[in-house]
Computed example of a mutant assay.
Amino acid sequence: MTAKLQAATTVPVGVVAAMGGVVRRDLQASFRQPQDLLNPLLFFMMVVTLFPLGVSPEESFLRQSGSGILWVAALLSTLLSLDHLFRHDFDNGTLEQLVLQPQPLYLLVLAKTLAHWLVTGLPLVLLAPVLAVMLHLEGNSIAILCLTLLIGTPVLSFIGSVGAALTLGLRSGGVLLSLLIIPLYIPVLIFGTGTVAAAAGGASVGAYLALMGAFLVLSVTLAPFASAAALRISLSNS
């Protein structure tokens, strides 16, 4: 009885340790290649800062469209970094070792996607308030914007991981990845900007946040399984 209890408690600990190891390894690899870490942030800042110069610097216009500008910039910045999610591991053979691990592949993919969000999505959330002030958004709108980005950017990473796994090993994978993923990003973009618009208009945002939370739960639950299956297909065809 004691041996069975120890075995039952050892397996989850091994899985958690493996997932933690994947997250640490990916974070260390990202900091060893600062260009992959800084490019999405620089792109995010350039899109937001150049938009008023190219369209209109009027305060009323920027206050009305600021949340949409920030959300579109965050979406494109996440899309820019997705090609590197599995690419480096695929090139150096680490991805094949992950597939052969005794731990479930979908949990290791979950850990890799979480690490991707920590180095791409989370910095965007932290940088958003500064850029929102530049776009003349008000305090309540800035808070709701950051909350929607905090919920929505992980959804972008998890949905994008499926496309990154499907296009792995293809020569024009970046273009195909954009064509596959952008239509799936549209609902998140609509509800993300709609939440901020509702808050600015004084309406209740509970329903919007509930739907975005549902997107997050569904993406965390389903996307790792789809990404793991797509990785097996890509590796078998390579």
Rank of each mutant, 00 (worst) to 15 (best):
F61L: 10
E58C: 04
Q64N: 11
G163H: 02
L179F: 12
A128E: 05
L222K: 10
T153P: 00
F158K: 00
D26E: 14
V109A: 09
L5P: 05
G194H: 00
A228K: 08
E59Q: 14
G54F: 15
L135F: 01
H84S: 12
A3G: 07
R32A: 15
A210H: 03
A143F: 09
G93A: 05
L122A: 12
S60M: 12
A229T: 12
F158V: 00
V188G: 02
A228I: 07
D36Q: 15
W117I: 00
L100P: 06
T153H: 04
L166D: 02
A73H: 05
V133Y: 07
L177S: 07
S67Q: 06
S234L: 07
S227V: 02
V162Y: 08
L38V: 12
L179I: 11
A164V: 03
V11H: 14
Y208T: 02
G160T: 03
L80C: 01
S227K: 07
L150K: 01
V23M: 13
I159Q: 03
L231V: 08
F31N: 07
W117T: 00
P154I: 01
F191E: 07
L95N: 05
N140H: 14
L75V: 13
S238T: 10
K4Y: 10
N237K: 15
P12E: 03
L126C: 13
M45F: 09
R232G: 10
D26C: 07
A132W: 02
Q6A: 14
Q35R: 15
P40Y: 00
L108N: 01
L98V: 13
S77L: 02
L189W: 11
V175T: 12
L53K: 11
E59F: 08
I182V: 14
L211Q: 04
L95P: 05
V217K: 02
A8R: 14
L135K: 03
F51K: 04
Y185N: 06
L82V: 02
V99E: 08
I159M: 04
T94F: 13
V23S: 05
L105N: 11
H136A: 06
H88I: 12
Q97G: 08
L131C: 03
G21T: 10
D36M: 15
I144T: 09
F86R: 06
M46L: 15
K4E: 11
L222T: 11
V188C: 05
Q64F: 13
Q64L: 13
A164R: 03
R25K: 14
L156T: 04
R63I: 07
F225Y: 12
V205H: 01
L53V: 14
A223F: 07
M45E: 06
A17C: 09
L149P: 04
L62W: 04
L147A: 13
L41N: 04
